[in-house]
């Protein structure tokens, strides 16, 4: 009688051991890999890994790496290979849109909000931390974020925001 129970993704119909043994017996005798082939592959592996260790591995900034991991996990969650390609395209489009929005946001901060990096209406230590993280991560930042007006956006701007945020006589609220 045919079993019509619903299957989980990895459930296969019960299979008799006798059939499995017969299928295995159909395979030709196993190939013995000669040691000369082993040696050639493993020597090349040793050489390649030594060379690779000598040069710094290209790495994405931590935030980008995390984003890639999220995308990969999200796409892998899609069950069907056909839909997975669509999911990759969607994820890529989402990242491009987010990048465009982020660039747009960073490039046109209102002049009267200098220092309010996270745009919560206040200049506080959170802005300093957020800016410091972006600077450390190598993010290209808009010149409008030059809080101390020294011509460059760097950790000194984060320090200046932090100083202003913790100074007792400043009015940090915009």
């Amino acid at each position: 009688m045919t079993d019509h129970r619903p299957c989980s993704p990895n459930e296969a119909p019960p299979t008799p051991e006798r059939l499995i043994r017969a299928l295995a017996a159909l395979a030709p005798p196993a190939i013995i890999v000669p040691s000369i082939v082993d040696d050639a592959i493993l020597q090349e592996a040793s050489r390649h890994l030594r060379t690779a260790a000598a040069r710094p591995a290209p790495s994405l900034p931590a935030t980008a790496q995390t984003l890639c991991d999220w995308m990969r996990r999200g796409v892998q969650a899609v069950a069907f290979p056909g839909l997975r390609r669509l999911a990759w395209a969607g994820a890529a489009a989402g990242v491009m849109a987010a990048g465009w929005l982020a660039l747009r946001t960073l490039s046109v901060p209102p002049a009267d909000r200098a220092g309010d990096f996270n745009r919560d209406g206040r200049v506080d230590i959170l802005d300093a931390l957020a800016l410091a993280q972006e600077v450390q991560g190598g993010t290209r930042l808009a010149r409008e974020l030059d809080f101390n007006r020294d011509g460059v956006v760097d950790r000194h701007d984060a320090d200046a925001i932090a100083l202003r945020a913790v100074s007792l006589d400043s009015d940090a609220t915009l």
């Binding site: 019960p14 299979t15 051991e17 499995i20 295995a24």
Partner: peptide, 13 residues
């Protein structure tokens, strides 16, 4: 004997 093919050890591996 029937067994669930999802949990079997593949022969020859």
């Amino acid at each position: 004997m029937m067994r669930d093919a999802t949990t079997m050890e593949p022969p020859g591996t």
